[in-house]
């Protein structure tokens, strides 16, 4: 586990928060971004209270990164407005950059410098003295388990090490608001758990975080609020508990031998399901969210009685695909989502 003494280090490097964290939140109103004819993001409304975590959940191309780029002043919105730490991201972009830390999806560290020098350069650009930047950088390297590689060139780092250095870079300025675009993609399970712990400590000290993820588990564990994006539009907004209530519990997949048996299998499954089954006609799989307390053996018996040739039956937790199916089933069919 990473040591976290971030509040202390903020003081020691002289980059203390200049304003109370009460205005450290994020708002967005009708935020939209168009590239040519395509709206990458549309009608995004957000309200993130200081010291809380918002999870932006969605597939690749859902608009997560576009939202982050606008909120971090890297991209101009086509319509709507947003504030970060009480500052307008378009009009006060320079002031916003003083208050935020960003770890984007693409690695933004310099491969031809050591990890230590990368952090030192960023600290210097934050206005720290050379000594303070060096000290703060070394503390973060320690926290993110990179001390052994402090002097190695970043181009020799593994993907996971680069991710962690990116997170360290985003923390150099002691930000009020932290933006993390898929921070745990490419991390092994242990590093992922350590990073979650570290972020939880930062939130406890008052940092506001927006993180994007494709993993339901991550959003569930980290976020106080979740916004689900699909094709640039908000398809759901709520706490993890609310969202889970909407998408149901575990899923049961039944693979059948022939396409003609799909409907019959769904019929046999309906007694155990919370809502209508969905079909994957290519894989010959029927899927349905099942009620709490259902035993797989009872489902097997019911299928057998109905004379259905079930090849395989799997019980599993709901995935991001299931969330989208549940939330967007009127707009998309399963083929599109799994393509």
């Amino acid at each position: 586990m990473y040591e976290t003494s971030v509040q202390h280090t903020k003081d020691s490097t002289g980059t203390k928060r200049s304003t109370p964290p009460s205005d450290g939140g994020i708002t967005a109103t009708g935020l939209g971004k168009r590239f040519g004819d395509l709206w990458a993001l549309r009608n995004l409304d957000l309200r993130v209270e200081p010291g809380t975590v918002l999870g932006l959940l969605g597939h690749n191309g859902a608009g997560k990164t576009t939202a982050i780029r606008i909120l971090t002043t890297l991209s101009q919105p086509t319509e709507g407005s947003a504030t970060v730490a009480g500052l307008d991201v378009v009009r006060d972009s320079a002031a916003v950059r003083n208050r935020i830390g960003v770890a984007s999806q693409q690695s933004t560290v310099d491969g031809l410098m050591s990890g230590r020098l990368n952090l030192q350069t960023i600290g210097r650009l934050h206005g720290m003295s050379k000594a303070a930047a060096r000290q703060r950088g070394d503390e973060l390297l320690e926290q993110l388990d990179l001390t052994d590689f402090a002097t190695a060139l970043v181009k020799t780092y593994s993907g996971g090490m680069r991710r962690r250095l990116d997170v360290a870079a985003s923390l150099m300025g002691g930000p009020d608001v932290l933006f993390l675009d898929e921070p745990t993609t490419g991390l092994d399970p242990r590093s992922r758990g350590d990073l979650w712990q570290m972020l939880a400590d930062l939130v406890r000290e008052g940092t506001t975080i927006i993180l994007t993820t494709q993993y339901l588990e991550e959003a569930d564990r980290m976020a106080d609020d979740i916004v689900v994006l699909d094709h640039g539009e908000t398809v759901a907004h709520g706490t993890p508990a609310e969202l889970k209530a909407r998408i149901g519990d575990d899923r049961l997949d039944i693979k059948v031998a022939a396409a003609g048996e799909l409907v019959a299998a769904a019929g046999a499954l309906s007694a155990f399901a919370e809502s209508d089954a969905t079909f994957d006609t290519e894989q010959l799989v029927v899927t349905a969210p099942i009620k709490a307390g259902v035993r797989v053996i009872d489902v097997v018996r019911a299928l057998d009685e109905a004379g259905i040739d079930a090849v395989d039956i799997t019980r599993r937790e709901a995935t991001l695909d299931d969330v989208f199916l549940a939330l967007t089933s009127d707009r998309h069919n399963r083929e599109e989502l799994t393509a």
Binding site: T72, A94, I100, V102, V109, D110, L125, H126, G173
Partner: peptide
């Protein structure tokens, strides 16, 4: 071509 420019642009410089 690399992402490093985005890092510098998100810093107060």
């Amino acid at each position: 071509q690399e992402g490093v420019i985005d890092r510098f642009r998100s810093l107060p410089s």
